[in-house]
């Protein structure tokens, strides 16, 4: 069971936003959907929730075809960056009507969260600032209690305190009522400690799909004097290098944990963000090389 995406392709004119994407989002898990701008993250969510029709491929939720089926679509809630509520609707009214469509919507919890975040429920949704519009949508997402939750840039426009409050509320919700949560964000460092499984998407293609721990297993940052670092990483899988003056830092993949570094060098576990940047740089380089070769 879970969400199964099979060979989903979506084009916008000459741009291929999703290319034969295959992915399985299992029941109960915290997923991170990571990708550059224009990688296809929002399109991916929009296809799952029937906002966009794929050109080919299918989406199945708990074994049933998702396209245009109320019972299936009702199991998924997507918190997007855009507003899908009527322009004159007020926050409180939105809380009321959400209960009509999602019987498990916890209105009391929504009002409590609104109070905690300082969201004025008497305000019109379209009059909310970017940050509060995100808070409004995030509160709905946290309180609908659907088995699948898709969060697209959930902390857009939120200050550091509100972001922290959001992550706490999210973990609390997950602990109390485990479900499948997929977070698409650019703030990788902030979600790295939350997500259990990372999905990296680039140019509409899934590049990596693995548990976060497995992805970072063997990924180390080796830093120190430039020459010493260069000597140490020679013959190893150096994914990314950054230098500053005489110092250098290299991300190495596939380095066993027990290997000790020589004196003067430091070895740190690579973060998800380091890994993501390294992966993107590598792909960018590969693209540039293939472009220059074809010329």
């Amino acid at each position: 069971m879970g969400i199964e995406i099979s060979k989903v392709t979506k084009r916008f004119g000459s741009t291929c936003a999703l290319q034969a994407v295959d992915l399985e989002l299992k029941e109960q898990g915290l997923y991170g959907l990571l990708g550059n701008n224009g990688a296809g993250k929002t399109t991916f969510f929009n296809v799952i929730t029937n906002r966009l029709y794929p050109d080919s491929g299918s989406v199945r939720v708990d074994g049933a075809e998702a396209a245009d089926r109320d019972d299936v679509l009702g199991k998924i809630y997507m918190m997007g960056e855009e507003n899908y509520y009527p322009e004159d609707m007020k926050v409180r009214k939105a809380f009321e009507v959400t209960g009509l469509f999602y019987p498990d919507f916890n209105k009391a919890r929504a009002l409590e969260l609104a109070k905690q975040f300082g969201l004025d429920t008497k305000k019109k949704i379209t009059k909310l600032s970017t940050g509060y519009a995100s808070i409004f949508r995030m509160i709905l997402a946290l309180c609908v209690n659907t088995p699948y939750l898709l969060l697209d840039e959930p902390v857009l426009g939120l200050d550091a305190r509100h972001r922290d409050m959001f992550y706490k509320a999210l973990i609390e919700k997950y602990a109390e009522e485990p479900c499948t949560i997929v977070i698409s964000t650019h703030l990788i460092q902030e979600v790295a400690h939350i997500i259990e499984h990372a999905v990296v998407i680039r140019d509409g293609t899934i590049m990596k799909d693995a548990p976060t721990e497995a992805l970072l297993d063997g990924c180390w940052n080796i830093s120190g004097p430039r020459d010493k670092v260069a000597d140490f990483v020679r013959g190893k899988n150096a994914v990314k290098e950054s230098t500053m003056g005489g110092l250098s830092s290299v991300l190495v993949d596939g380095l066993p944990e027990e290997i000790q570094v020589p004196d003067g060098l430091e070895k740190h576990k690579a973060t998800l963000q380091d890994y993501f940047i390294a992966l993107m740089d590598k792909e960018e380089l590969r693209d540039e090389t293939s472009r220059s070769c074809s010329l």
Binding site: T49, N50, R51, D68, R69, L73, I76, E87, V97
Partner: peptide
């Protein structure tokens, strides 16, 4: 347009 947006946000299919 307003209804399509609102309904799709709330898990209502296009047919419904």
């Amino acid at each position: 347009r307003e209804d399509l947006r609102f309904f799709i946000q709330n898990g209502v299919g296009r047919r419904t």
